[in-house]
Protein backbone atom coordinates (compact mmCIF):
# COMPACT_ATOMS: atom_id res chain seq x y z
CA UNK A 1 0.00 0.00 0.00
CA UNK A 2 1.12 3.48 -0.78
CA UNK A 3 3.09 5.33 1.85
CA UNK A 4 1.81 8.54 3.41
CA UNK A 5 3.57 11.68 2.32
CA UNK A 6 4.00 14.69 4.52
CA UNK A 7 1.22 16.39 2.54
CA UNK A 8 -1.05 13.41 3.18
CA UNK A 9 -0.39 13.67 6.89
CA UNK A 10 -1.24 17.38 6.82
CA UNK A 11 -4.40 16.66 4.85
CA UNK A 12 -5.55 14.01 7.31
CA UNK A 13 -4.74 16.30 10.25
CA UNK A 14 -6.93 18.96 8.69
CA UNK A 15 -9.77 16.49 8.07
CA UNK A 16 -9.53 15.50 11.74
CA UNK A 17 -9.21 19.15 12.85
CA UNK A 18 -6.01 18.43 14.75
CA UNK A 19 -3.58 21.29 15.10
CA UNK A 20 -0.17 19.64 14.99
CA UNK A 21 3.30 21.13 15.33
CA UNK A 22 5.99 20.56 12.71
CA UNK A 23 7.62 18.06 15.07
CA UNK A 24 4.38 16.17 15.54
CA UNK A 25 3.74 16.06 11.80
CA UNK A 26 7.21 14.66 11.17
CA UNK A 27 6.91 12.08 13.92
CA UNK A 28 3.44 11.05 12.75
CA UNK A 29 4.65 10.67 9.19
CA UNK A 30 7.21 8.10 10.39
CA UNK A 31 4.90 6.38 12.88
CA UNK A 32 1.88 6.16 10.63
CA UNK A 33 3.95 4.69 7.82
CA UNK A 34 5.41 2.16 10.24
CA UNK A 35 1.91 1.18 11.37
CA UNK A 36 0.60 1.04 7.79
CA UNK A 37 3.40 -1.41 7.00
CA UNK A 38 1.90 -3.74 9.59
CA UNK A 39 -1.41 -3.51 7.73
CA UNK A 40 0.22 -4.98 4.65
CA UNK A 41 -0.38 -8.42 6.14
CA UNK A 42 -4.09 -7.99 5.38
CA UNK A 43 -3.45 -7.82 1.66
CA UNK A 44 -2.41 -11.48 1.79
CA UNK A 45 -5.97 -12.49 2.56
CA UNK A 46 -8.42 -12.90 -0.30
CA UNK A 47 -11.60 -11.38 1.07
CA UNK A 48 -13.49 -10.74 -2.16
CA UNK A 49 -16.44 -12.92 -1.22
CA UNK A 50 -16.32 -12.29 2.52
CA UNK A 51 -19.07 -10.00 3.87
CA UNK A 52 -17.94 -7.27 6.26
CA UNK A 53 -18.81 -7.40 9.94
CA UNK A 54 -19.67 -4.01 11.38
CA UNK A 55 -21.34 -5.29 14.53
CA UNK A 56 -21.04 -8.60 16.33
CA UNK A 57 -24.34 -8.51 18.12
CA UNK A 58 -27.25 -10.04 16.25
CA UNK A 59 -29.92 -7.50 17.07
CA UNK A 60 -32.38 -5.90 14.67
CA UNK A 61 -35.16 -3.33 14.88
CA UNK A 62 -34.37 -1.82 18.23
CA UNK A 63 -36.90 1.00 18.16
CA UNK A 64 -38.61 3.09 20.76
CA UNK A 65 -42.10 4.53 20.84
CA UNK A 66 -42.47 8.20 19.98
CA UNK A 67 -43.02 9.37 23.53
CA UNK A 68 -41.38 12.58 24.69
CA UNK A 69 -39.51 12.67 27.97
CA UNK A 70 -37.86 15.33 30.06
CA UNK A 71 -34.96 17.46 28.80
CA UNK A 72 -32.15 18.86 30.92
CA UNK A 73 -32.59 22.17 32.74
CA UNK A 74 -31.00 24.91 30.65
CA UNK A 75 -28.41 25.51 33.39
CA UNK A 76 -27.18 21.92 32.96
CA UNK A 77 -27.02 22.31 29.18
CA UNK A 78 -24.83 25.38 29.51
CA UNK A 79 -22.88 24.43 32.64
CA UNK A 80 -19.92 22.86 30.82
CA UNK A 81 -19.65 25.28 27.93
CA UNK A 82 -16.65 27.61 27.74
CA UNK A 83 -18.61 30.60 26.46
CA UNK A 84 -22.27 31.30 27.13
CA UNK A 85 -24.62 34.26 26.67
CA UNK A 86 -28.39 34.58 27.14
CA UNK A 87 -29.01 30.82 27.32
CA UNK A 88 -27.04 30.28 24.12
CA UNK A 89 -23.63 28.70 23.68
CA UNK A 90 -21.31 31.19 22.00
CA UNK A 91 -18.88 30.25 19.23
CA UNK A 92 -16.75 32.37 16.91
CA UNK A 93 -18.79 34.01 14.16
CA UNK A 94 -19.52 31.31 11.60
CA UNK A 95 -19.49 32.86 8.15
CA UNK A 96 -18.75 29.86 5.96
CA UNK A 97 -20.92 26.84 5.29
CA UNK A 98 -19.71 23.45 6.59
CA UNK A 99 -16.68 22.16 4.77
CA UNK A 100 -15.48 18.58 4.80
CA UNK A 101 -13.05 18.80 1.94
CA UNK A 102 -9.93 18.77 4.04
CA UNK A 103 -8.44 21.69 2.12
Amino acid sequence: MAALSRADVEHVAHLARLGLSEDELSRLETELNHILEQYAVLARLDTDVIPPTAQTIELENILRDDEPGPSLPVTDVLANAADVADDFIVVPAILAAPDATGR
Binding site: M1, L4, D8, V9, V12, A13, L15, A16, L18, L20, E24, L28, E31, L32, I35, Y39, L42, L45, T47, I50, P51, P52, T53, A54, G102
Partner: peptide, 29 residues
Amino acid sequence: KRRIMLGTYALSAGYYDAYYLKAQKVRTL
Protein backbone atom coordinates in the same frame (compact mmCIF):
# COMPACT_ATOMS: atom_id res chain seq x y z
CA LYS B 1 -3.87 11.93 18.05
CA ARG B 2 -2.03 9.00 16.46
CA ARG B 3 -5.20 6.89 16.48
CA ILE B 4 -7.44 9.70 15.27
CA MET B 5 -5.03 10.20 12.39
CA LEU B 6 -5.00 6.47 11.61
CA GLY B 7 -8.77 6.19 11.78
CA THR B 8 -9.40 9.32 9.73
CA TYR B 9 -7.00 8.07 7.08
CA ALA B 10 -8.55 4.58 7.01
CA LEU B 11 -11.99 6.08 6.33
CA SER B 12 -10.93 8.80 3.92
CA ALA B 13 -11.90 8.91 0.28
CA GLY B 14 -9.93 6.41 -1.76
CA TYR B 15 -8.76 4.33 1.22
CA TYR B 16 -12.03 3.09 2.72
CA ASP B 17 -12.09 -0.15 0.76
CA ALA B 18 -8.40 -0.94 1.22
CA TYR B 19 -8.43 -0.35 4.97
CA TYR B 20 -11.76 -0.06 6.74
CA LEU B 21 -13.80 -2.40 4.56
CA LYS B 22 -10.94 -4.89 4.35
CA ALA B 23 -10.62 -4.89 8.14
CA GLN B 24 -14.36 -5.50 8.55
CA LYS B 25 -14.10 -8.49 6.21
CA VAL B 26 -11.16 -9.87 8.15
CA ARG B 27 -13.28 -9.37 11.24
CA THR B 28 -15.78 -11.79 9.73
CA LEU B 29 -13.02 -14.38 9.33
